[in-house]
Amino acid sequence: MLEQWKSWLTEKLTVPEDVITDTPRLTMIGQHHLLVENHHGIRSFFENRIELHVLDKELIIKGEQFVIKKIHPEELLIAGVIEEITYGQRKEGGADGKT
């Protein structure tokens, strides 16, 4: 009910979706930086693969030499060589980091 109302509101007010709903916003600068806003935490984190929780999905970033420059509650900056960004289905329990 709340979600429906929110999406209706964004449509009517013509504001970006990520402002009202929790939709992630990805800003990529070249191949080296990726800013993820509205993330819901880290699922796993390795030098060549980072998985993040976003909304009801999972964001998988593949590449090399990943360093998370900073982590704020709603913002995350990744530096490294980014090769691939994909969405995947959310698996429950982000504890095991060996996916």
Binding site: R43, F45, V67, I68, K70, I71, H72, A95, G97
Partner: peptide
Amino acid sequence: ERVEDAVNECIRTSLVLTDVKRVDSRCAQF
């Protein structure tokens, strides 16, 4: 074993971590 959980916990308590780097599968530096 659960480094990611610890990082998520940090996010929840508004703790700012910078330059997070994976050293090996069980260890992270920041």
